[in-house]
Design a protein around this nucleic acid. Structure first.
Lengths: 195, 195, 195, 195
DNA sequence: TATGAATGAGTCTTCATTCAT
DNA sequence: GATGAATGAAGACTCATTCAT
């Protein structure tokens, strides 16, 4: 049924989605369980199945919520970005900010890696693929605009390579004793953009 | 405790590790459960907790076993490879064979993606990192040798890029409706090596 | 796995089967639930899934247990039955005893009707059909023997009719305010055997 | 409370009853649930508890509705039936049509068996018995008239036997791997009417 | 040394019913 | 009069782990 249209219902529904998104980002897909979500949202267990026919449905909502939130942030960032030539380092920071999210201090490595854990886990959840494609396409759009505003015209093939390079750098960073995926990606991008 | 010193004990322990490795490769970490491993090894359920204090311990052994097996295969492959100039396509196939494992027919996409699921899952199991680093370094060595034997001298930075490119291509392939990660990686490599 | 081979395990397994059979006979298929069975057998809830992979499996065991018990009783009854010509009324009682079970005082109507509730519920559980067929065939054998020992040779078609008549009489008795299915069946049989 | 006196209320109440009757006939008692009924009637979930104090109450109304509908159909059929001698096969078809309902193609076996599931379930709902008695008596009347119009005068005892025979044949058909209760009943009737 | 047996805690999901509005 | 929202109780089932033997 997927109920809720009144303000109150909508609020509770939203609370569940947010709780689920938090769990997803902090601890991965496996942490998004009825019990955990309900507890975090401080709502009864059965409210989770009242608002969402299945756990999958809730997961989709959580992924979408998180993805949209990130895109909004990315777009805002972009909107505030003056159009002007840019030093390579500052450009790379902008790119990484879009692709890996904002730098988050101590937990940066963890959060970045969780991002890829999420991405890979998508494979097991084919129903997420359309959503992920949409979000991915929008992200790519933002990325292109970053370059345009920096006075650089990148051909699409280079953009694909750039993204793959960052993603590959991150998953490779995993095996380090003390991984710093953002730094590895930065180095990689540097070599790619200014060889 | 982690028993097993008798030959018989050692044999059973090994059988469990192999069973766990198979499950890991075929169906991912979540599939490595006491019951499943014991059944596949055709041993009693409690032998799994008898020979390994916890499931994690068994998982580690399985990862190591699998990694070593793959490196051995890679080395053998290389040993059989004549030193001679090589067409780009055949070179790329060799590279992908080393990085993604041998092509496995119908389930190729699945198995390749499971490989990255495994890689990313490493993040949750820091104790796997040293092992993964060792295995990764050896893999890189094999890869370099593939190029050398093909009459190409690649500088280490290019090798890093190449690996990242493949890894990034694969994890990005995930969001396709019907992912074919090997094909995506192949295309990417082509553009990289013969732009 | 459906464990249990040791005496103790076998005893617990048997306790579950008996508890399930009781529930089945007293309150119908719907009453055979994990919780109810475990409570009646005074065993932990998860023992039900330990000994039986699924509830269906337990139900099958319960049906078989009950059916076999009844057949054994029927066979014993028969064994004690002298071979000799028999008055129609006493013959009919024997037949009803085989087909409807022994007369059970106050609850006779209820227990007889539950028997048919069970029979009809079989329709929803196709996996029970082979078993029911086997039990039914054995019951028919006992019934034939009752006639033989009474000096009557019935052709198979008449036996089928006789059984259908009893079954039909019983299910028709259901709509009485105060049903007495055994009496209705008796009257029907009388008209059939001594028209 | 059991509301509904306004025309609109009456209409909605009726819609619920019809929806419940359909579910009852198509999928049995267990399928008559608040949600399912409301959805099929395209009315809000809580209208089911608003118009009927409990689910049982709704079930009773559904049974009555369905029974009456069937009798009306039977009476119409009969009204259209010319009084004339009739071949045994065509007579049997008429009888089965009255007793088992019209033949319903692929799902015939299922629907016939559901009819007996319903009959037997009556046992658990004593308040349905008076209704079922009335409906049963009327059905018997229709059946007698079928014979009369076919030029056959059956004494009441034979009619009882005939009905029991059909009912018994049907419930016995249940244990077949692929039950065809109508065929079994037809064969039984044939042997009974033309031995 | 080995293992069959056992189970508590937890998984998702369904549903009749209540109640505030 | 009507209903959207809500939930407690129960359903089947899974599994890592413990323990007595």
């Amino acid at each position: 049924m997927t109920a809720a249209s009144t303000p109150k219902g909508e609020r509770r529904r939203q609370a569940l989605v947010e709780a689920a998104a938090e769990l997803l980002v902090e601890r991965g897909f496996d942490a998004v369980r009825h019990r955990a979500v309900a507890e975090r949202a401080d709502l009864p267990l059965s409210s989770t199945t009242y608002y969402f026919d299945s756990l999958d449905e809730l997961v989709v909502a959580a992924v979408e919520h998180h993805g949209r939130t990130e895109l909004v942030r990315g777009a805002e960032l972009l909107a505030a970005l003056p159009t002007q030539p840019r030093a390579i380092d500052s450009l790379i920071d902008l790119v990484l900010d879009q692709l890996l999210g904002p730098h988050s201090g101590d937990r940066d490595a963890e959060l970045v890696l969780l991002r890829y854990e999420r991405l890979v886990a998508t494979f097991r959840r084919p129903y997420l693929r359309p959503l992920m494609r949409t979000l991915g396409a929008e992200l790519r759009g933002l990325l292109l605009e970053v370059f345009t505003r920096s006075g650089i015209e990148l051909d699409p093939r280079r953009v694909e390579q750039l993204i793959a390079l960052v993603d590959g750098a991150v998953v490779n960073a995993l095996i380090e004793i003390d991984p710093d995926p953002r730094a590895v990606a930065r180095r990689m991008l540097h070599e790619f953009l200014a060889p």
